[in-house]
């Protein structure tokens, strides 16, 4: 077992951005109970992009949703950037603000707001933080550019293709420059070229801003880019060494 037990670290630089200790999550109770997570532990350092693998139904989404303070864990401990988030219940009453400011969540499906256009879906997040409309739209434009969907910015959500919607959702997750990004199969609806450029974007963010990123994926093309991986099996996380292939090489291959 490759469970990482981490002692408390004084130095902020090496303090894990995400620290999960003995996390468990049970859906339902009695005979119909599903033990999605049993004893999951992991840590992700600032600036690190970590892959999360595991067969369908193994609990990957469940783990991310616990970390994102979307569903309640059943036991264990979550610490984000040195702040204790969960231990015997939530330690934060205002988890909505936490999600807004500190966690960029890319869901398995886009879940965009249907009554706003693509740009507004992105710009809405900085606005929630109290940024001016000008700043918010500038940030949205920047992200649309990075994700290569600038020309679709004014489109209604239902007019976007699945891949375009997903890229808007990725842009939304990054809009507030969160220190943590939780990405649940972000590249599933994208073609391999776009998938790779999204991975590149995430790595660039990690390197530039010290963002800690967990990426759930099934994509065989993408798995080689991670330096470090976790595999979820029977509710337990196992750490693995990754290839950590550089992007230029991958790009050349296409």
């Amino acid at each position: 077992m490759a469970v990482t037990k981490t002692a408390p670290v004084e130095n902020n630089d090496t303090q894990p951005a995400i620290l999960v200790e003995n996390l468990s999550k049970t859906y339902g109770s009695g005979s119909s109970a599903v033990h999605a997570l049993k004893d999951a532990s992991m840590q992700v350092l600032p600036g690190e992009v970590v892959g999360l693998l595991g067969p369908s139904g193994s609990g990957k989404t469940t783990l991310l949703q616990c970390l994102g303070a979307i569903i309640d864990p059943s036991g264990g401990r979550i610490t984000l950037g040195g702040d204790l988030l969960f231990e015997n219940g939530w330690q934060y009453s205002d988890r909505r603000t936490l999600r807004r400011d500190r966690i960029g969540f890319i869901f398995q499906r886009p879940y965009l707001i249907p009554f706003m256009d693509a740009t507004e879906n992105i710009a809405f997040l900085p606005m929630l933080q109290g940024k001016s409309n000008k700043q918010a739209y500038a940030r949205a434009a920047e992200l649309l550019e990075m994700l290569d969907i600038t020309e679709r910015g004014g489109a209604r959500i239902e007019q976007l293709s699945g891949g375009e919607q997903q890229r808007v959702a990725i842009a939304r997750a990054l809009a507030n420059r969160p220190p943590i990004v939780l990405a649940d199969e972000p590249t599933a609806p994208l073609d391999s070229h776009r998938a790779m450029s999204v991975m590149k974007l995430l790595h660039k963010m990690a390197a530039k801003s010290g963002t800690a990123i967990i990426v759930v994926t099934h994509d065989e093309n993408i798995i080689p880019v991670f330096k470090r991986l976790y595999r979820l099996r029977d509710g337990v996380l196992h750490e693995e060494e990754g290839e950590g292939r550089p992007f230029d090489y991958l790009n050349d291959e296409q």
């Binding site: 979307i70 909505r96 999600r99 807004r100 997040l125 929630l128 939304r172």
Partner: peptide, 15 residues
Amino acid sequence: KEIAVLKLIGTRNAL
């Protein structure tokens, strides 16, 4: 459903 998404991305109740 949309309201739940709004909450998910951090929209305050007042809004």
